[in-house]
């Protein structure tokens, strides 16, 4: 799940300063689950912005809306023509949602209401922790299903380092467990300690963001119009 945090009210307030009627658009996906961009948060942000504007002696009209997802085109249809009513939009979807909105409605002014942080898991109620870095070449098969790329402070592939103490990481001994300790314990419990003896090569970061903007294509679906053309070609044999 994508985890995002609310931006300071002051910053969002700065974005919308010139406008008198805005839309606050929530997303029903990941950011709803991590309690930062759902319907309720739309309400709170709307109230906060309205109050701040009132203190400054101006009124602010807000259209509140939450769509199931902001990262897929079809859901934007649910907005109908509400977007035409407003001068700007504050999207509290993740960074992908904000950009999808801009791409779908190139004439609209869109501002982000969240700081998108990481791919994570809700470890306990109200606590989300980074579990995946989206590096593009998964090593979980060698580490018992626990990721050193995302969850080691140094991202080292052959750990632990000297900063591992009593199972915790020296970067934040209260909150960050040493992932290599976790990996060791896990591999021991599944009787695969042989895996830890394998030295992993230097990581090829070209599959991560270092290799440029990433894209994924599904050969069955990719560029459907083109495929339909291809389908019309006579079958061989």
């Amino acid at each position: 799940m994508i985890v995002a945090e609310t931006k300071p009210i002051e910053e969002i307030y700065g974005f919308i300063e010139p406008y008198n009627k805005i839309m606050v658009l929530g997303c029903g996906g990941c950011v709803s689950v991590c309690l930062s961009g759902g319907e309720k948060e739309v309400g709170v942000l709307t109230s906060a912005l309205k109050l701040k504007r009132k203190i400054d002696g101006r009124e602010l009209e807000v259209v509140e809306m939450t769509i199931p997802r902001q990262c897929d085109w079809e859901y934007f249809d649910l907005m109908g023509s509400r977007l035409d009513e407003v001068e700007a939009v504050v999207s509290i979807g993740c960074g992908a949602g904000v950009q999808a909105l801009v791409k779908k409605f190139p004439d609209s002014l869109v501002y982000p209401g969240l700081n998108t942080s990481f791919l994570g898991v809700g470890e306990k109620p109200g606590v989300w922790v980074e579990y995946c870095q989206g590096c593009g070449s998964c090593v979980l098969g060698l580490t018992g299903g626990i990721c050193p790329v995302a969850r080691c402070s140094k991202h080292i592939l052959n750990g632990p380092c000297g900063g591992s103490e009593k199972g915790m990481c020296e970067v934040d001994p209260k909150n960050i467990p040493c992932v290599w300790q976790l990996i060791y314990d896990r591999l021991k419990s599944i009787d695969r300690l042989d895996l830890i003896e394998k030295i992993m090569d230097m990581k090829d970061w070209s599959t991560a963001t270092d290799g440029g903007v990433r894209r994924m294509e599904n050969p069955e679906v990719f560029a459907l119009e083109h495929k339909q053309q291809e389908d019309k070609e006579p079958a061989k044999g």
Partner: peptide, 11 residues
Amino acid sequence: VDTRLLLRAFE
């Protein structure tokens, strides 16, 4: 009560 309700009162 939730945050919205409390802010609404001030609104």
